[in-house]
Computed example of a mutant assay.
Amino acid sequence: MLRRTYDGQVCSIARALEIVGERWTLLIVRDALLGVTRFDGFLRCLPIARNVLSDRLNGLVANKVLERVQYQDRPPRYEYLLTAKGRELAPVVLALMEWGDRHAPDGTEVPRTAVHVGCGGGVGVGLTCDTCDGPVPAAKVALGPAQ
């Protein structure tokens, strides 16, 4: 979706930004995670131009993050549903939300919360080690080459 590429970089973060790095894209995904499915619904939630929203939705569909499903014949109307690939962005959106709550608070609003639909408990993003199964503080995480 981005108008620039990251040629020469062997980096999955750069490839992910090609899909979700445009302005508004993650906010559209956020709203889809909150249950918004229709074009007008996204317009109500976001101060975004119709043509930009259309472009972002088309890009998310092309990258199989959203699926475009017709729900009305006359006139034809569509909704945009998260695919399994799109739902996998939930931890990314949640991590950005938690980071923003800590480091970019607005001061006037109550932060959004994430809740486990099954039991009502709070849900957070946590780092755990796949070897020792213990929690890992962010300061103890290092990125390295693929193994």
Rank of each mutant, 00 (worst) to 15 (best):
M1F: 07
L2V: 06
R3S: 14
D7K: 10
G8L: 03
Q9M: 12
V10K: 05
C11R: 00
I13D: 04
A14W: 00
E18D: 13
V20H: 01
E22N: 13
L26A: 04
D31W: 15
A32V: 08
A32N: 02
L33G: 03
L33E: 00
L33K: 01
D40N: 14
D40C: 13
F42S: 01
L43V: 14
L43H: 03
L43I: 15
R44H: 14
R44I: 10
C45V: 00
A49F: 13
A49C: 04
R56M: 07
N58S: 15
A62M: 06
V65H: 01
V65C: 03
L66I: 05
E67N: 08
R68Y: 05
Q72S: 13
Q72T: 12
Y78I: 01
Y78K: 06
E79M: 11
E79F: 00
E79H: 08
Y80C: 03
L82F: 11
L82V: 06
G86K: 01
R87A: 06
M97R: 13
D101W: 04
A104T: 07
A104L: 14
P111Y: 00
G118F: 00
C119T: 12
G120A: 04
G124D: 11
D133N: 13
D133I: 01
P135A: 12
P135L: 09
V136R: 06
P137V: 00
A138Q: 09
A139K: 15
K140L: 02
K140D: 15
G144R: 07
A146I: 10
Q147G: 10
